[in-house]
């Protein structure tokens, strides 16, 4: 009796375990099937190319003859030591980011503070400030290029009515950089405004009410309550905006083509130029790797700060 029972239970157990394994495996297989399209596609169109570009960056590659020779870090040395253009480009990218990021975030925060609570007309203003975000960057650049022309541009014609002689915005190096920054801010500020509005709306109103009852002024409330509570949002927005400023391409391509005198030649555009206009594949790849390193560093910085924030 006892042995029969034992036999039965072991048979059951054995059978059960075998089937269970297959059931579990089926669940795992289904899951793998679900994630495989994005994973394989990502592997082919992102991760593979990411590895490849590192390889390319160590080649001297003549696109016409198809000859490629391994040159080690020569392309990097070329960029970092020999080619003055590179530092110019890096400086331009830095100036672009340094101008765009504070302007964008400051304006976004101001607009969000004005528009995060309902009042008559709030939707109207939100819709207006966000409209350029949904507009194609190409269309936006075309229209602004038109508005900012030297002689017949609408901006200068209007300034002339006020007796001001406006510069040829996109043809003078300093003005050109300012112009692409400001027009880009107007294009993108709506997005950060919306993110800030969402962040502001997630702050419980009780804080504000409590502070008001204690006699705090609007500015005090902002400085001592709202701004600290916005810190996580500010961090995310700032990283996204910085990385976003790094990859601005179409805007520059259409408004200034990097000019005048390479005054608006930024990294993203420089990569495109070197690769697809001058066919310096090896050199352009080295630039792309440098861009990747910068973007990765910024992302890791974000992760680091968020970890620290939570701790």
């Amino acid at each position: 009796m006892a042995s029969a029972m034992t036999d039965l239970s072991t048979v059951n157990n054995g059978k059960g375990r075998m089937l269970r394994l297959s059931l579990r495996r089926r669940e795992a297989l289904t899951a793998l099937l679900f994630v495989s399209p994005i994973t394989i596609g990502f592997l082919v169109f992102f991760f593979g190319p990411l590895i490849a570009v590192i390889g390319y960056s160590m080649l001297q590659w003549n696109l016409l003859t198809g000859e490629a020779t391994f040159v080690g870090y020569a392309n990097y040395a070329d960029a970092l030591r020999h080619n003055p253009d590179f530092w110019r480009v890096l400086r331009n990218s830095l100036v672009f980011a340094a101008g765009l990021v504070p302007l964008n975030m400051g304006l976004a925060l101001l607009l969000a503070l004005a528009l995060h609570r309902p009042f008559r007309g709030v939707v109207f203003f939100r819709v207006i400030f966000f409209a350029p975000v949904v507009t194609s960057a190409v269309a936006w650049a075309i229209v602004w290029k038109f508005l900012l022309q030297g002689e017949a541009g609408a901006l200068n014609e209007m300034l002339a009515l006020m007796g001001i002689d406006g510069p040829n915005w996109l043809r003078e190096p300093n003005w050109a950089m300012a112009a692409v920054i400001v027009t880009r801010v107007i294009k993108m500020v709506g997005l950060n405004m919306i993110l800030y509005i969402a962040a502001l709306q997630s702050i419980p109103r009780d804080y504000d009410s409590a502070a008001r009852l204690e006699g705090a002024s609007g500015w005090q409330i902002f400085r001592m309550i709202t701004w600290p509570l916005l810190a996580p949002a500010t961090l995310i927005i700032s990283i996204v905006t910085v990385v976003g400023s790094l990859k601005v391409f179409d805007h520059i391509y259409l408004m200034t083509e990097g000019g005048p005198e390479n005054g608006t030649l930024v990294l993203a555009f420089y990569i495109y130029q070197q690769a697809f206009e001058f066919f310096a594949i090896g050199y352009a790849s080295a630039l792309a790797v440098i861009m990747f390193v910068i973007a990765m560093a910024l992302t890791l910085l974000q992760v680091y700060f968020r970890r620290k924030d939570r701790a």
């Binding site: 994005i38 994973t39 990502f42 082919v44 169109f45 992102f46 991760f47 593979g48 190319p49 990411l50 490849a52 570009v53 390319y56 990283i239 990385v243 790094l246 990859k247 391409f249 990294l267 993203a268 990569i271 495109y272 690769a275 697809f276 594949i281 352009a284 790849s285 792309a288 790797v289 861009m291 990747f292 973007a295 990765m296 910024l298 992302t299």
Partner: peptide, 20 residues
Amino acid sequence: FLVSGLMVPEEVTIIPNFFL
């Protein structure tokens, strides 16, 4: 693996993608 690609500009991979 997927997260690693979230913040990378498409300019980084455009050259190998061209050849691909």
